[in-house]
């Protein structure tokens, strides 16, 4: 996915450096028919640029903040936990639900993410069917079941 295809605003931001996983996740969300805007990014710095409308996304005119950020842990350049740390450290973004969607089951990773204020920590199932189900369930919960914060703009 190219940066050009990123919408001005999205409901779910997915940060995933593996294109196959990104596509499987995107497909799963489309299938669910939630009618939501998905933006997929390949690395942490891109997400931060997008959210804060800077760098390559300086020209972006954001309408709303996302309803959910799905964040992989092992990302090139700026890793998932660094992104998380910055998001949760910023008054403007700290209320955005962030779910780690990662292959890691390492206790220290889990601990660290919760320390940084992650809202949920989910391990990617190897099985693609279950992976798809997991992504769908997450989206349904955070978008439709969970009551989002009132403030949705920066």
């Amino acid at each position: 996915m190219s940066k050009q295809s990123l919408p001005e605003s999205a409901d779910i931001l997915l940060v995933e450096d593996q294109p196959s996983d990104a596509e499987l996740a995107a497909r799963a969300l489309q299938q669910e028919g939630l009618d939501m805007r998905l933006a997929v990014m390949r690395c942490g710095s891109e997400l931060l640029d997008y959210i804060f409308s800077r760098g390559e996304h300086a020209s972006r005119q954001p309408v709303d903040l996302p309803l959910l950020i799905l964040l992989d842990l092992k990302l090139p350049r700026v890793s998932g936990d660094e992104v998380l740390e910055q998001l949760k450290a910023d008054e403007r973004t700290k209320h955005i639900p962030v779910v780690m969607l990662t292959s890691s089951r390492e206790a220290q990773d889990v601990e660290r993410c919760y320390q940084l204020g992650v809202n949920s920590f989910v391990v990617k199932p190897v099985d693609s069917t279950r992976f798809a189900e997991t992504v769908q369930r997450l989206a349904r919960y955070w978008i439709t079941i969970n009551e989002p914060p009132r403030t949705r703009s920066l």
Partner: peptide, 11 residues
Amino acid sequence: LRTPLRAIDGF
């Protein structure tokens, strides 16, 4: 191995 495997499985 998990990521490519998920890809094989998924695709």
